[in-house]
């Protein structure tokens, strides 16, 4: 298969890679750019572990072709902290023990950040429905919901 050259922006920095036409954005991020924070839990859009944003829109990177990244702005978990300052969601997840094995955590954080950008004061139910596509098998979600709400409150300055 003839490879394609893709120029894109990842976490604000220019990035280039070559990929096969059928390659997913997830595979390109992980294998071409070395950004292994997004995980493949299913490869079919059912678990959310590969969540990233493309042009500000939350997506499963396993359901995006790498070739579609041409000219796009991609944001991944690796770009969530600002230098040595963790994002309030990242801190809240540690403080509230909202992770156990942690493999779903990058995807959940990316998804939760996207929720709070759209809705800074969600109800628990809104958080639960927004995150329904992010499977977590360890926590039963309880502490995740609490952590998101705590970060939301902090970000509102409450």
């Amino acid at each position: 298969m003839k490879k394609l050259h893709v120029s894109t922006t990842v976490n604000g920095d220019p990035a280039e890679f070559v990929c096969t036409p059928d390659e997913s954005l997830l595979d390109a991020l992980r294998n071409r750019l070395g950004l292994t924070g997004a995980k493949e839990g299913c490869g079919t859009g059912d678990c959310g572990a590969c969540s990233v944003t493309v042009n500000g829109r939350l997506v499963c990177s396993c359901l995006v072709l790498a070739a579609e990244a041409e000219g796009a702005e991609i944001a991944t978990i690796e770009g969530m902290a600002e230098q040595d300052r963790l994002h309030p969601l990242q801190r809240a997840f540690i403080d509230h023990a909202a992770l156990q094995c942690g493999v779903c955590t990058p995807g959940i954080l990316v998804a939760a950040k996207s929720l709070l950008a759209k809705n800074p004061e969600p109800t628990d139910e809104e958080v639960r429905y927004w995150l329904a596509g992010n499977l977590c098998r360890c926590t039963g979600y309880d502490k995740i919901i609490r952590a998101v709400q705590s970060a939301a409150a902090e970000m509102r300055g409450a």
Binding site: G45, S51, V64, A111, L115, W130, N134
Partner: peptide, 9 residues
């Protein structure tokens, strides 16, 4: 259809 992520696409 699908999750929030799927809704983005």
């Amino acid at each position: 259809i699908g999750s929030t992520q799927v809704q983005g696409r």
